[in-house]
Simulated scan of single mutants.
Amino acid sequence: MAKPDQNQVLRQLPIAVGILAGLLLMANRLLTPALTDSQARSDALGVILSALLILTGLLWQRVQPKPPDAVQLVGEEGFELAPDLPDPIKTELAWASHLLLTNTVTRSVVVWYDGRVLLRRGILGPQAEVKPGAIVQRVLKTQNPVYLVALKLYPGRVEFDYLPENTQGVICQPLGSRGVMILAANAPRSYTQQDETWIAGLADKLDNTLQEMLSLTSES
């Protein structure tokens, strides 16, 4: 379901008032049998003010654009962790995913690391298994994030069958060269540059924890 735009009425109010004022001025002019000089000047001023109101409304439409429509992602809400993970890693994954789901437009989080899924949280997709496709493979190879601002426009969207089917936007954030954090949003073009920077910092911290803890586990 699309989220209503609470500012839509305010953005359209100057346009509506300008049009209404212009129509009233025209009606008054047509119904007046004899115009005086003062009335003609008043009508001219009213037309100018009405035009300014309409122009202001049009400018507001550009300066304050309508936010992208959000949808209700298809799927059940859940929280899945790989059962054999050490408790500190489970805590770190739970903390990081909670921050993402509560502080960004992210509605689904998948963490894939060392060839397996460590976490799925939020609205879960139909597939639990992650098979890295061309986009995720490129992220792993280059260690640079990829932001698909409107997923439906990309042919490569078919590789994200482990996300809700109506996912609107996706960020693939590398966790070093060994993993990737995949975030699904319910609205296109909804992540800001500040969001992307913050997500990158969170991913670096998570990757550092995973490397340290999994190395200790393998040594023991």
Rank of each mutant, 00 (worst) to 15 (best):
W198N: 10
M26L: 14
L45T: 15
Q143C: 08
S97W: 02
G78M: 04
Q64E: 12
T192H: 05
E129R: 14
G176W: 02
A203Y: 01
K90R: 11
T104I: 05
P174Y: 00
D37C: 00
E77M: 09
Y113Q: 08
A16I: 11
D69R: 07
D43Y: 09
A200P: 02
A44E: 12
G22T: 09
Q143G: 10
W95F: 13
R41Q: 14
L118T: 04
N103G: 07
E92P: 06
L140P: 03
G46P: 01
S97V: 05
S38M: 09
L24M: 13
Q194R: 12
V109I: 11
S177H: 12
T197N: 02
G75I: 04
V136H: 02
I123G: 09
E129G: 12
R157F: 04
T36K: 03
E219K: 06
G179T: 08
Q64V: 14
R121Y: 01
R120G: 11
D207G: 07
H98W: 11
Q211D: 12
G125Q: 05
D37V: 11
E219M: 08
A184V: 06
Y191P: 00
R138E: 14
K90C: 12
K131R: 15
L53A: 14
F160G: 04
N166D: 14
P14C: 09
L206R: 00
R189G: 08
G156E: 13
P14L: 09
I54W: 04
E165K: 08
E80A: 14
R29F: 14
R121C: 04
S108R: 06
Y191N: 00
T32I: 03
K90V: 07
A185P: 00
V109S: 03
F79I: 07
L24Y: 13
K66R: 15
P188E: 05
P188W: 01
D161G: 11
K141V: 10
V158R: 13
T56Y: 05
I199W: 00
D84V: 09
L73G: 08
D114I: 00
L118P: 07
R120M: 10
L140N: 02
N103V: 03
G179C: 13
D195T: 08
Q211F: 04
L183A: 06
V111R: 00
Y147F: 12
R41M: 07
T217E: 15
E80V: 15
R138S: 13
W112A: 08
A70E: 12
L148N: 10
V130P: 02
L23A: 15
M181W: 01
L49I: 15
T56E: 06
E196C: 00
S190C: 05
L151T: 13
I123D: 11
A203S: 13
V71N: 06
W112G: 06
N208C: 02
R178A: 12
R189V: 09
M26H: 03
V146S: 13
T197E: 01
G115S: 06
T32F: 02
